[in-house]
Design a protein around this nucleic acid. Sequence first.
DNA 1: ATTACTTTTTAGATTTGTCTAAATTATATT
DNA 2: AATATAATTTAGACAAATCTAAAAAGTAAT
Lengths: 226, 226
Amino acid sequence: MKVSASKENHLKAIFHLQQEQGIVTTNALAAALKTRPASVTDMLKKLKDQKLLIYERYKGFKLNAEGKKAAIQVIRKHRLWEFFLVRKLQFGWEEVHEIAEELEHISSRKLVDRLDSFLGFPDTDPHGDPIPDGQGRFHTQRQKCLCELPLNKEVQVSGIASQTTEMLEVLQYNHIQLGTRLEVRKKFPFDDSLEVKVRNRPPVTISAQVAKNVLVKDDEPFAEKR
Amino acid sequence: MKVSASKENHLKAIFHLQQEQGIVTTNALAAALKTRPASVTDMLKKLKDQKLLIYERYKGFKLNAEGKKAAIQVIRKHRLWEFFLVRKLQFGWEEVHEIAEELEHISSRKLVDRLDSFLGFPDTDPHGDPIPDGQGRFHTQRQKCLCELPLNKEVQVSGIASQTTEMLEVLQYNHIQLGTRLEVRKKFPFDDSLEVKVRNRPPVTISAQVAKNVLVKDDEPFAEKR
DNA sequence: ATTACTTTTTAGATTTGTCTAAATTATATT
DNA sequence: AATATAATTTAGACAAATCTAAAAAGTAAT
Ligand SMILES: [Mn+2]
Ligand SMILES: [Mn+2]
Ligand SMILES: [Mn+2]
Ligand SMILES: [Mn+2]
């Protein structure tokens, strides 16, 4: 049974939504996919027929084991392509999502596995999200946001939660990017802004809003594997 | 105006057909695309509406300048991806066509150009076909088939016209592959078979049928550009 | 010029994925 | 419990791409 691009998009979105809530609702999915609730209902019937999810009308739905497996494969493809685009083709991390949204639907399994190998089996995509391996396993995200970090502990930036051009601008200005090593020196309770010391640079101050979107990890997220 | 994957496939097939005949027929296109004549007629109307081809009913058709440009971009994508698959992901040249048939429909122009650059601006795909550059220019095929080659001139294999598994088997057996340097030592007029000397190997004999499908060039078709 | 054959087009259906508007079911409020 | 509101589903429509079967146009042969 074939899974079309649209079905793959649905599976992926359902998977992400059910990470947070256990059960997914029609409206939430429609919003996530920028489609209409009626369209979602239509698709749900098809996915149910293909035995990829558990669904009873008016009662919400969630992926079954089979559906989860399929969703993870799409996510794997998406993130591997993003990694490829940034690492090999010199794209910026803010411009790869859209392209990967197309590339993730190329069907050859062999292609994905070869790509994975070519890239050196990376485990984190350019946004800091984990890349599932060939069996669908991936390390659970142990990223924290900058705002919930203890003082004076050096960490490495491993992801950016929301990457708008404006956000990027601030980070660029403060010399913060993926892989940057830094530590939090001070917290200002008044506005929750932080003094951040980037290694080899003078300290800078960033707002709570920005801090909330900077994700960090203890160990290297982006080790070169050439 | 968007050009769907199916439209791109049609454009590409028309382009190839009109290389040989100036004008293309409905049946020929249907055969090339493994679709039905009625479906071709349907698509022709759409392509005409999008001003990509010249078409009068019952009178055949051909691409206009606009259509040719679009077709060449698809061919460019197809061949660049094939090159990528063989060179970077270690695929065999006989298995890349199908995958490239999907990859060629990824729309980002920037992606194609970056890929081109990443690959070192190759000008020949793994089957010996020329890869159009960013402006749609490509060297006209100056490949010859082995059978029309002068004696004792060393050349390099630059393409295989028809690559079936059976054909591959013969070539593999005789240590002939893309890039192999060889020369024709003798021609047997009786059956037009050839004695071929592959560099650093004892001479072998190949049939006229095989020779007809081995394309060669004088200069390096596959120079490493790292 | 008729007739016979081939090629191409039209007419009408089908599948997939989407939509709007209306109906239904669930949930919340009095 | 009755009613209002929100969420979800159904009904019916549409666009894209394909198909089969039948009609129309072109070509060739007597
Ligand atoms: Mn997608
Ligand atoms: Mn990502
Ligand atoms: Mn294709
Ligand atoms: Mn090729």
